[in-house]
Design a binder for these strands. Structure first.
Lengths: 335, 335
DNA sequence: AGCGGCTTTGCATACGCATGCAACGGCGCT
DNA sequence: AGCGCCGTTGCATGCGTATGCAAAGCCGCT
């Protein structure tokens, strides 16, 4: 019963059920022509042999693996796991298998990573924030549908969805200005990240439009540690900023800890801190982080629809979605 | 160049290079017999056609997919992503592809989850904390090597590795008692989880040995929210505990927030809080959580060795590892 | 009874690759 | 020159499944 050395094949089932291998195959193929009696005989035989169709062999003839390559970077911060969780659940619920492709280190996709694509994935979804443009081109050259999350690219057969970063940055600038902050600082993430490029430049532009200078600027890497470190630097000087906008929540948490614990500042009385993403942790009382909500669930839902559409018609025109983010007011900013 | 409708096959490469398909295959097979000249001609042709061997087709004949099924539950807490990250990196570095199998809901593996196993994974690694014993048996019946993380099971062809939970729980009990705590409470995780069963009973036993009563007990589900909720309940009564041991870090964070923010308690002066796992966040100043270190990196390293060993010899005797955890003293407990 | 149309079935083949086997060629040896 | 050996190559086949095609069976109809 347990631990057969060799898994049963369709031929084994066919023999047991007294039918041809084709008949067995048809019993496991949606919409194939089989009589009710044959089907039940076959299914019974299959059950007795614990037979399940070999997805690998099947995909060889159908030219569909049902595998979706998911390119992602580190799961270090709180955001990536949240996104990954949502995405893989969604894929599973649509009957697709996520196949992990590790990215990030050096922003390039090395051999090990690309090896995953040898499994003939039906499509590739890129969620890693900083995959180099060269790597993206490499993926495009693969001749496989490509879905990009978190960046906007215009190219044939490439769909992308990316929260409206500039809008999010503007919302923060306007809210801070309206609340009377005058010495506003910005802590950016990894400069190679698309989201950083959009958020940083839009925030600067919005401040300029409002007639406010940028009091100080730091460069982190989207990690808690970098947020902590840069906040210490930005807040140490004489003209301490009265507000700090961080490129993501993880850095905002680091900044929050630095401000309160290391510098003894009161948040939001002495300093307003605003993040970006609204990860689940942002709502924890320890942080109560005011932030921009990156509507992950909505985005993933749309992404999955885009995926199905693209799989159904590889030649469909490329699509770009930019869902709007939202300012979530909690306790870390005086707004 | 970009976006060929059909990927090049070994036959295409063979034609271009003027050799047989076998020769092409051998050029991509480690240790096969090919002359230097043929190899370079073939590799050049392969490059021009962007040819990469089809891993699916290859596995059909080699009977090895290089895919490792990874059964995991939610990535909600801080621990699972940390573990998953470490594990998938390790797998990738050994040239293996993780194929995700979603578990948890109802502790069972539903059809969608099992479908992943139709891809002929070479082995299955279970990391989900609460997969029902029935589901485990189902996996064993698959006839595929099974590696269990976080639980101990004795069965042929099943290896397991699991941090020494009883030892961890004892360390906490002893440290709390030695520091003079007398009203010690315990907040357990999901009762169906193996780790909870070990931690809970060992903690109770250790307290009893030390001659201390269990001041109060709560039942959470390993989530931050449940930690918050149960802490409020446990700490509300008249004889407030002076120490609280939580079944994992996530619940400890929730308890910490509840104690400090909602109840206005000073930690560790009014109340000591100890967690289990030592996730990266535990070191953040906001929490500075005293906790038991679950040596994830070491465990994954051992797990990967066990995996290789098992793949090399499916009939090797089963192995059980119980690496010892360690008490990490930070600021959340008066020890 | 005879016929056309529909459903069900099996046969044969293809999917892309790895590999056993035999054939071939070059080499050093006697 | 003749022999045997080894490195290299191609041929043929098999992995487990899906599917086009034709044969077979069944039905209701005239």
């Amino acid at each position: 019963m347990a631990g057969e050395r060799r898994r049963a094949t369709a031929v084994d089932v066919a023999r047991l059920a007294g039918v041809s291998q084709s008949a067995v195959s048809r019993c496991f193929t949606e919409g194939a022509s089989v009589s009710a009696e044959t089907r039940s005989r076959v299914l019974e035989a299959a059950r007795r042999l614990s037979y399940r169709p070999n997805a690998i062999a099947r995909s060889l003839t159908t030219r569909r693996t049902n595998l979706i390559g998911v390119v992602m970077g580190d799961l270090d911060g709180p955001f990536q796991p949240y996104l990954f969780e949502t995405l893989t659940r969604g894929l599973a619920s649509r009957g697709r298998q996520p196949l992990l492709v590790r990215g990030d280190p050096a922003d390039a996709l090395d051999g090990t990573a690309m090896a995953a694509l040898d499994y003939q994935v039906d499509a590739v979804v890129v969620t890693a924030g900083s995959v180099s443009p060269a790597a993206i081109r490499g993926l495009m050259a693969l001749g496989v549908p490509l879905l990009l999350y978190g960046r906007a690219v215009e190219a044939d057969g490439v769909d992308s969805i990316c929260c409206d970063n500039p809008l999010g940055a503007r919302l923060v600038a306007q809210a801070l200005a309206a609340a009377g902050h005058r010495r506003i600082a910005y802590l950016g993430g990894r400069p190679t990240a698309f989201s950083e490029q959009e958020r940083g430049s839009a925030f600067r532009a919005a401040l300029a439009e409002l007639g406010l200078p940028l009091a100080a600027a730091g460069e982190g890497d989207y990690s808690y540690d970098s947020g902590h470190r840069e906040a210490l630097r930005l807040l140490a000087g004489p003209d301490r900023p009265d507000a700090l906008f961080c490129g993501n929540d993880a850095m905002a948490f680091g900044a929050l800890d630095a401000a309160r614990t290391a510098l003894g500042l009161r948040v939001p009385d002495d300093l307003s801190i605003v993040g970006f993403d609204d990860v689940p942790m942002a709502g924890w009382p320890s942080f109560s982080l005011t932030t921009i909500r990156n509507p992950v669930e909505d985005i993933v839902a749309i992404l999955l629809d885009m995926l199905e559409r693209r799989l159904a018609d590889p030649d469909a025109p490329p699509v770009l979605h930019r869902p709007p983010p939202l300012l979530v007011r909690r306790g870390s900013a005086r707004l």
